[in-house]
Design a protein around this nucleic acid. Sequence first.
DNA 1: GCTATGACAAGGA
DNA 2: CTCCTTGCCATAG
Length: 126
Amino acid sequence: MSKFIDRVIKIVRKVPYGKVVSYGQVSLMAGVPRAALQIGWVLHIAGENGATPWRRVINNAGRISTKCLEHTANHQQKLLEKEGVEVKNNLKIDIERYRWKPDIKTLKKLELNQDYIFGILDKYGV
DNA sequence: GCTATGACAAGGA
DNA sequence: CTCCTTGCCATAG
């Protein structure tokens, strides 16, 4: 298990019920700002053990973009609606309305330096 | 160690 | 708003 994968999984597990985050946001919090693409890969693995809420991760455009045959977009949509997240036609979601905005206290537990944390808060913070 | 791949992001058309 | 192009980076071969 690489540090990267471990971190991503931990972060995704912090996402509250009924909230969503973007791939880019997760990668940023994981310490690698532009590894959004890899998040999907990690979730594919994490999804195996059902303990990780991969359903709450969508792309920044507010759209469900999974291509995985076992975890279809349609299936994800259903799971999200079950949590109270409104999914409009074509797998679209008002992400800014449901986005999880981590507080500084949570970010401090991620082994990141101060400046970096403020950078995250500046973009997604409350 | 090098190349190909992908559940992305951001900016332009 | 939607579609296309380019940039990015961890993994798998």
